[in-house]
Simulated assay, not measured.
Amino acid sequence: MSKRPVKLIVISDFSCPWCFIAHRDLQDAIAQCSNLPVSFEVEYRPFLLHCSAPAEPIDKNEYVGRKIGRERWEACKLMATERGETVGINFSFSGPISLTIPAHRLMTKAYEIGGPAAQCSLITPIFRAYYEDDLDISDPDVLADAAEQAGIMTKAEAVNFVKSDECLAKVNHQVAEARAKGVTGVPFTIIDGKWAVSGGQSAPVFVKIFSKLAEAPSSPPSQSSTPVPVPAVAVA
């Protein structure tokens, strides 16, 4: 039986713990839906959750605590830690924060090199470096290690890429495009350019959505609380 392809665009940022959790949940849901008459192509696109973060790394807790309030940040860390444990993430919130543009540029390059599979191989090493190993993901060596681990480039190739400005214009364009389309928070998942899933959702929620897509491919999922109509979003 041939499977109908479903394109998923996931707008996310590496500085968002819920994006890491959402990636795990989405991959879990896709695995659970392997028997459905649909196949999935997942493209990750950039968002800058902390667009005022400095180019040079500073203490993560200090910056985010000052930006959103320490009490709110502590509550966020607790919730993310508890939720992360259920999907195998050992969150640590120490270490530095800086603009995530270099990591997004590398993800964009990975898509150009190997499409969704390359991005899927790369995204977890970057998230782990940031949220489990407390590393600076604007550091060319850190990103190069992730690229080499994912089999995207050699370490030397990746270092040279990160030190360049290749893919910068495309990342800036996609960030601006997401905001122009009304995306104000992440993760944000666009399904076939027609429906959106806003915020981090559990694997069972995605399984329900994908099952409805499989049952009625010409109609939007009927679950009113999650998929919502969105303006046309470029998926090319």
Rank of each mutant, 00 (worst) to 15 (best):
L8P: 06
V10L: 13
C19K: 00
F20M: 11
F20G: 12
F20V: 01
H23L: 04
D25L: 03
D28W: 04
A29D: 12
Q32R: 02
S34Q: 11
S34G: 11
P37A: 05
P37T: 00
P37V: 00
S39Y: 01
F40E: 06
F40I: 09
Y44I: 00
Y44L: 11
P46M: 02
F47E: 11
L48G: 14
L49A: 12
L49H: 12
P54N: 14
E56N: 01
E56G: 04
P57T: 03
I58Y: 09
K60A: 11
N61H: 07
Y63V: 00
G65V: 01
G65R: 03
R66Y: 12
R66K: 12
K67N: 09
I68C: 10
E71A: 05
R72K: 13
A75E: 10
L78K: 11
M79T: 04
T81K: 09
E82P: 04
R83V: 04
E85Y: 00
T86P: 13
N90G: 11
F91L: 13
F93Y: 09
S94D: 12
S94V: 00
P96M: 04
I97L: 01
I101C: 12
P102S: 06
H104E: 12
H104P: 07
K109D: 15
K109P: 12
G114I: 03
A118E: 12
C120G: 14
C120S: 13
I123N: 13
F127M: 06
F127H: 14
F127V: 04
R128H: 05
R128F: 03
A129E: 11
D133T: 01
S138E: 11
P140Q: 10
V142M: 04
A144V: 05
D145Y: 02
E148W: 07
Q149A: 15
G151D: 15
I152Q: 03
T154A: 08
T154R: 02
K155M: 13
A156V: 04
K163W: 13
E166S: 00
C167V: 07
L168T: 07
N172F: 02
V175Q: 10
V175H: 03
A176G: 15
E177H: 03
A180C: 06
A180W: 03
V183G: 05
T184W: 04
D192H: 06
K194R: 07
A196R: 02
G199W: 04
A203V: 00
I209G: 13
F210W: 03
F210N: 12
K212E: 15
S219E: 15
P220F: 01
P227L: 08
P227R: 04
P229T: 00
V230Q: 08
P231V: 08
P231T: 00
A232F: 00
V235I: 09
V235Y: 10
